[in-house]
Design a protein around this nucleic acid. Structure first.
Length: 1063
RNA sequence: GGCCGAGUGGCGAAAUAGGCAGACGCACAGGACUUAAAAUCCUGGGUUCCGAAAGGGGCGUGCGGGUUCGAUUCCCGCCUCGGCUACCA
């Protein structure tokens, strides 16, 4: 009976832990070090757990178990991110309430997680859909709603760090006198504009199929991320959170976090802070009557009351300064290159820009209207697809460049986005690749004017850019003929030579034009991107280096009221409302007038009214319009009359799924608190999260949103750290088993009736499932847009054939058909997906091998962060290891579970002790660095030795079981009990090693000659160089190798190696 | 197109303040046990050349260079694969 039987052991110990509340977090003990270890909680989908989930969960579980044994108090909770579309979609289909589906899925997930033996404190379980939980989600929303961002506030937080900029209560917002003069309603409207949660009408991604509006990040390639439905852009009133106010802090405060650099970088890129200037270009009153006189900014004339000329306007600006909001007489642009203002040869507005109507001349109106119409229907995908040939239309209108009084034509084009900067740009085709592409593809071509002469070094680099963009051979030959340039940079010569050798290639027409333009005009050999250079053709600024020029002209523009320094973020404010049912309702009311129409004024629910729960609904079908689902709610839910008699209507949007996951790490600390979202004392004790593990797919959004909420709470004094997650680790994706794929044509075997063409896949004998055509080498194959295999050369559709390992063999770098070595085979592991049929279900692994084997295998596959393919045989391997551990300690031939007779209570021999202590050292180190794969190797090596011992001292085996226990806790508990343990081993002290026992008395020193290994000598560990060198010179192989040569040098690395350098 | 990461045996991988490449596991091959199989245990192996063997030599960490007594590790250039991103002025 007592073979290793996971199915018997595992439920037994899971029941024990539950019964004894082994992993319940006790009351906080200030005397103990704390450790808060968090997994990214899952969305409980109907499909159940995926093998990707236990990867991170096992890693954190090991860390927790290890640290408990090291005497720390550990907080390790689990919960459910349970709002979201799938449950609602299921409700639409079947009428099942999302709450029912959600509860059922949670049940499944919980059972599965428990079957893996994770040491969660289940008393802390929560779901974002619990009214007890989302009560506080709503409460935090009200905090955000109650906050405005004071960008100039200087303050020192509880962390002792000085900051500029703070979220403050709306009651502290200074009200400008002119607003105050207009009465209370005006003040309230003014406040509402400044809140961190505000309403905004904006074009949004309306997805008719889902009946909802999607956030930009939920739209992938112009289709909905979920369901792949088409998406249109329509304007809609939305709630937004002013995350951009925190852009700087979200970027800079990443610096001190122990996060992977790549994730930090992704967040910084996402935030995309850029510094530049806003500049106004005059377009005259109503865009007409545009008159230019010869004067420019540097020589303003006297002020006229009604600016009717450019000079008057300049003069008035010199007096009034730069207005907060641009008036109708200007186009405000944003640029990061104010130093290229003199090179602006045209301007571009986003098609949606409000000034377009004013600027469009009668002759151009039809074209402009048509273009705008077309642009409004375009999804983002269409816009990017047309990227290669930039489209645009001339408005017929012009604006005046404030720095030189030049008249520049104004275009509209959708390569300029309304949502970034001011939705308008000045185009400098000489120094901006996009502007250049646009200018060169107009007919007639738009002028290009260079205003920066790059440094010599950048001339060379400019060439590199041209080489990459244009016909390389000519450029490369030209370069090689110019030793001055080539010799300055060896990489340059190499590149040029390579290009000449390989004959280069032709790129798109635009790139060629771009190149010609540059090649013929040396003054245009410029860096396209920022680079050190000096101004030319820029009036009084000529000769100024770029950086100096930027700050100088920005200051000058500000002084003359024409521009100002500006910062922009790629990051947009967070679109926070959804039109769905299954989300948190907003705790807000709209005031209604006597006719039942919203007045635009808002009221909030009292804290005591929270949670605002979802109304019961008769059906879950989307409204089919952009109207939110909740607008179909019962009247009793929708309307109420305030004590002062005002009629109120509820906000009918719901919050996005991100809301609940923004703060769950806080609630875990104090999940039962009915008086506060978290007890302040407990918050100080447990936060921040010490280790946060999850998939890299949340690198940007979830982590950025949580950090944002946390910072608002920090500013408002509710949490004491500026950052929620101190250390972050991303586990790598687990792919399906490696697959060998061959490709064949669909069926070219000649049809008996004569016709042979089968390129369309219909004629011929073969079919897609039973292809009979010629094999095609994998190198000839590529994927089309729908992911089908096609022949690179002709686009002919091919059939894919799964091959077994026996059918292929390795040849050089690639795999080929075993009997057709000329046919290359693709060998790859793919993402697990239902459609591919390569999904591994953890339940079946537990059923066949046990939870300990699954855990061990997931950790043994490779480094935690790496992407790795699954292998069922690998599971079998670690399972064999556990069985060997079992047999080594138990007597598997006995009828009951008892110790192996070889396990005895005797004094261990020194080699046994040494092996144990080395293993302790290595495993401890590996656990500290999350190197679980190597820790398992070390335990295997230990076992390989121990199985050879006829006597296995208990005092060796007990610490070994403790070392194994974080990895494979069930079998470890069972063995621990057998070795005399009376309670769980979860709190046994972690074994320590004796430094004296991990050092060897004699060591092997490799001896090299000229860096090549020639011998190994065994010496006393303390031997000095002379002794070792003498010993080495006595070695036969060394003697013969040294014969007739002169030793010029001897390199000795203490304890590592000896190297004779000879001639 | 941009950014990030990775390329080491048949496969998953180890080893990097530069110092014995391939630990550990899988798969494979041979052997033991067995009536047989499974399970288990033992043995073997990067590759190539010389040798009957013992043994010895060459080549080997994607490719091409460089620095060094010595490079999987550092530097330059290139190729391939994967992930993220997508006109952000």
């Amino acid at each position: 009976m007592p073979r290793y039987d996971a199915k018997r052991l595992e439920p037994k110990w899971q029941a024990y832990w539950e019964e004894h509340q082994t992993f319940a977090t006790g009351p906080f003990d200030p005397a103990k070090e704390k450790m808060y270890v968090l997994d990214m909680f899952p969305y409980p989908s109907g499909a159940g757990l995926h093998v990707g989930h236990p990867e991170g969960y096992t890693a954190t579980d090991i860390v927790c178990r290890y640290n408990r044994m090291k005497g720390k108090q550990v907080l390790h909770p689990m919960g459910w991110d349970a709002f979201g579309l799938p449950a609602e979609e299921y409700a639409i289909k079947t009428g099942t309430h999302p709450a029912v589906t959600t509860a059922k899925n949670i049940e499944t997930f919980k059972r599965q997680l428990k079957s893996l033996g994770f040491s969660y404190d289940w008393n802390r379980e929560l779901a974002t859909t619990d009214p007890d939980y989302f009560r506080w989600t709503q409460w935090i929303f009200l905090q955000i709603f109650d906050t405005w961002y004071d960008a100039s506030c200087e303050w020192t937080g509880p962390d002792g760090v000085k900051r500029i900029g703070r979220g403050r209560p709306i009651s502290e917002l200074p009200i400008p006198p002119d607003v105050a003069a207009n009465g209370e309603a005006a003040v309230r409207r003014y406040q509402d504009q400044q809140r961190l949660a505000y309403q905004h009408e904006a074009p949004v991604n309306w997805c008719p199929a889902l009946g909802t509006v999607l956030a930009n990040e939920e739209v992938v390639d112009g289709k909905s991320e979920r369901g792949n439905h088409s998406v249109e852009r329509i304007p809609l009133r939305q709630w937004l959170l002013r995350i951009t106010a925190y852009g700087d802090r979200l970027a800079t405060e990443l610096d001190n976090l122990a996060w992977p650099e790549s994730i930090k970088l992704m967040q910084r890129n996402w935030i995309g802070r850029s510094e530049g200037a806003e500049v106004d270009f005059w377009i005259g009153v109503e865009g007409s009557g545009l008159r230019v006189e010869g004067k420019t900014m540097s020589s303003p004339s006297t002020l006229n009351a009604e600016p009717s000329t450019f000079n008057d306007w300049l003069a008035s600006r010199a007096q009034t300064g730069f207005p907060r909001e641009p008036g109708d007489d200007v186009l405000r642009i944003y640029t990061t290159r104010p130093d290229t203002l003199f090179g602006a040869t045209y301007m571009v507005l986003a098609p949606e820009h409000p000034a377009v109507d004013r600027l469009t001349t009668p002759e151009q109106r039809a074209a402009v209207e048509a273009y705008r119409q077309q642009a409004s229907f375009k999804s983002d995908l269409d816009r990017t697809e047309l990227a290669k040939t930039k489209s645009g239309v001339f408005t017929g209108g012009c604006a005046i460049n404030p720095v030189n009084g030049e008249k520049v034509p104004v275009w509209i084009a959708d390569y300029v986005l309304i949502s970034y900067g001011t939705g308008a740009i000045m185009a400098v085709p000489a120094h901006d690749m996009r502007d250049c592409e646009f200018a060169l593809t107009r007919e007639p071509r738009l002028p290009i004017k260079a205003v920066v002469r790059p440094s010599d070094r950048f001339l060379v680099e400019g060439h590199v850019i041209i080489l990459k963009a244009g016909p390389r051979v000519d450029a490369a030959k030209m370069l090689l003929a110019d030793p001055l340039r080539v010799d300055r940079d060896p990489g340059m010569r190499q590149l040029a030579e390579t290009v000449v050798k390989t004959d280069g290639w032709q790129e798109a027409q635009a790139a060629e034009e771009f190149f010609k333009c540059y090649a013929n005009h040396p003054e245009l050999w410029l860096p396209v991107e920022d680079g050190p250079g000096a101004a030319i053709n820029s009036g009084k600024y000529n000769g100024l280096p770029t950086a100096e020029f930027k700050s100088k002209i920005t200051a000058d523009l500000a002084a003359s009221g024409l521009g100002r320094k500006a910062v922009n973020y790629r990051l947009r404010d967070w679109l926070f409302s959804r039109q769905r049912y299954w989300g948190e309702p907003f705790p807000l009311w709209h005031e209604l007038d006597a006719y039942g129409q919203p007045t635009g004024l808002l009221r909030v629910d009292a804290e005591s009214a929270l949670p605002i729960t979802l109304p019961e609904m008769a059906d879950f079908k989307p409204t089919g319009t952009p109207e939110p689902m909740l607008s179909k709610a019962p009247e009793s839910w929708l309307y109420q009359t305030a004590p002062d008699g005002t009629k109120l209507k509820r906000e009918t949007n719901t919050m996005p799924q991100w809301a609940g996951s923004c703060w769950y790490y806080l609630r875990f600390v104090d999940n039962k608190n009915a008086a506060a979202f978290i007890d302040p004392q407990l918050e100080k004790q447990w936060l921040p999260v010490d280790l946060y593990v999850g998939g890299a797919e949340h690198a940007v959004l979830h982590l950025l949103y949580s950090r944002f909420w946390h910072k608002v709470l920090f500013d408002r004094g509710h949490v004491h750290t500026a950052e929620p997650f101190q250390r972050l680790v991303n586990q790598g994706m687990i792919l399906g088993e490696v697959e060998f794929t061959g490709y064949r044509r669909l069926g070219l075997r000649p049809d008996p009736n004569g016709s042979e063409s089968a390129a369309d896949g219909k004629a011929g004998v073969g079919t897609e499932s039973q292809p009979t055509g010629e094999w095609v080498s994998a190198s000839e194959v590529t994927d089309d847009d729908d992911g089908n295999a096609i022949l690179k050369a002709t686009g002919e559709r091919l059939a894919t054939v799964k091959l077994s390992l026996d059918a292929v063999k390795k040849s050089g770098d690639s795999f080929v058909l075993a009997d057709r070595p000329d046919v290359r085979i693709e060998s790859r592991a793919y993402k697990m997906s239902k459609s591919r049929g390569n999904v591994i279900n953890p339940d079946s692994v537990v059923e066949n091998y046990g939870a300990d084997s699954l855990r061990l295998y997931e950790m043994f596959m490779g480094p935690l962060e790496a992407v790795k393919p699954w292998s069922m045989q690998g599971v079998e391997g670690v399972s064999r290891f556990l069985a060997r551990v079992w047999r080594t300690i138990t007597d598997d031939r006995a009828d009951d579970v008892r110790l192996n007779p070889a396990v005895q209570d005797t004094t261990p021999a020194e080699p046994q002790l040494r092996l144990l202590h080395k293993t302790i050292k290595a495993v401890t180190h590996d656990f500290d660095t999350l190197g679980f794969n190597t820790s398992i190797s070390r335990l295997m090596e230990f076992m390989n030795e121990v199985t050879n011992w006829s006597v296995r001292p208990i005092s060796i085996m007990r610490p070994f079981v403790l070392l194994l226990s974080p990895l494979a806790p069930h079998v470890a508990e069972e063995l621990w009990q057998l070795l005399g343990g009376t309670t769980t081993l979860a709190y046994e002290p972690w074994p320590t090693f004796d430094p004296k026992l991990v050092e060897d008395a004699v060591i092997d020193v490799p001896v090299q000659i000229n860096g090549k290994l020639r011998a190994k000598i065994t010496v006393d560990a303390k031997a000095d160089q002379a002794t070792i060198e003498a010993a080495a010179r006595r070695e036969d192989s060394i003697i013969s190798q040294l014969e007739g040569k002169t030793v010029v040098k001897v390199v000795y690395v203490p304890g590592r190696l000896l190297n004779f350098v000879v001639k």
